[in-house]
């Protein structure tokens, strides 16, 4: 958390991802899909990244792992365990220190038996045992091992994907929408496991569009909108509207069933039609001319916000980004 001096497992600062595309023939354009994004995960923390679909959540996960498409370019810094994560380093840590729970069941090889995929080809007895234990835990029959993905239901496939991440000994799990299609009790079980995994001193970056789920299990919530972080808040900030910082977060809060199901009109702008200045401007009740200028990220009450209307807080705490630089230097 921004007000705490804890070890960072993951620290992302000023991350931008853009795609080279060809507009009408030979005219090459750069399509920015993530801009100036900041996210950090500390020891023992579950950080939920919440945003509607198309806001760039999966791309964030892929950027950390170095598996972006070839026409994507990346700017900004990512630190893992206080060490700059270069493309070379990403190759070394992915699948070992950083595990991904992918977004859809299409991430399983359709022609390879499930067991072989979960064990990643490893046939040693220890790995075998571990898989069996995981299958028991997630109510997967032992025979599941010999099934092909097409023989598994959606919920089963989710649990299989989850098992792949828990097979190794990662420091960080990036879970990209891991629960849709899962039975509620099993989804809760999965969340408990993430909690336990984090409590052992590890980190979880939980990507979801389900804010209720995020509030139940996470320590901090990072709100995504149109490819950038508009707010970073503590889960406890969601207890009341006043503690929240950004108008979009407040809109999300009001849209929650327990808070009245109130939705705001409009939709997230498409990456090709981003407005000047604040990306939320066109839908914001507080919008004024100043919002069309540059919107810096500010620290307010142990969280961050990207809104010039949010009342200043004279907190002496500085943001984690500066910490990252000192860590990186040490």
């Amino acid at each position: 958390m921004s007000c705490q001096e804890k070890h960072h497992i993951l620290e992302i600062s000023n991350l931008s991802v853009s795609f080279r595309q060809y507009d009408r023939g030979t005219n090459q354009i750069n399509l920015p899909v993530i801009t100036n994004l900041n996210v950090s995960v500390h020891d023992g923390e579950i950080v939920a990244v919440v945003g509607s679909s198309g806001s760039g959540k999966s791309l964030l996960a892929h950027a950390i792992l170095g598996i972006l498409p070839y026409n994507a370019s990346l700017a900004g810094e990512i630190y893992f365990n206080q060490e700059l994560l270069t493309e070379e380093r990403k190759k070394q840590v992915r699948g070992k220190e950083i595990a991904l729970v992918p977004q859809s069941v299409n991430y399983l090889d359709p022609l390879m038996k499930v067991g072989l995929q979960v064990r990643n080809g490893d046939k040693s007895p220890g790995v075998m045992e571990r898989m069996k234990a995981l299958f028991r835990k997630y109510h997967l029959e032992q025979e599941t091992e010999n099934l092909y993905p097409f023989e598994c239901s959606g919920g089963m496939s989710r649990r299989i994907l989850l098992s792949t991440a828990l097979m190794g000994n990662p420091r960080l799990i990036i879970a990209d929408e891991p629960t849709p299609g899962m039975e509620l009790s099993l989804a809760k079980k999965a969340m408990e496991d993430f909690r336990q995994f984090a409590d052992e001193g590890n980190g979880v970056l939980l990507i979801t569009h389900d804010i209720e789920l995020a509030l139940e299990v996470a320590d901090r919530i990072v709100v995504f909108y149109a490819g950038t972080t508009v707010e970073e808040a503590l889960v406890s900030d969601f207890e009341s509207l006043e503690k929240l910082r950004h108008p979009y977060t407040k809109a999300l809060w009001r849209a929650m069933p327990r808070n009245g199901f109130e939705t705001i009109p409009g939709s997230q702008p498409y990456v090709k039609e981003l407005p000047e200045g604040c990306v939320f401007g066109p839908r914001c009740p507080l919008f004024s001319e100043e919002c069309e200028g540059e919107i810096p990220e500010r620290v307010v009450r142990c969280g961050t916000v990207r809104c010039i209307k949010c009342e200043e807080d004279h907190s002496h705490h500085h943001h984690g980004r500066e910490e990252a630089h000192t860590h990186a230097g040490s």
Binding site: R94, A99, P102, Y107, D109, N120, T164
Partner: peptide, 13 residues
């Protein structure tokens, strides 16, 4: 370009 290849890559293959 399939997702399963992407996942294989993400798992360090």
């Amino acid at each position: 370009e399939s997702d399963y290849m992407l996942f294989a890559q993400a798992r360090g293959e």
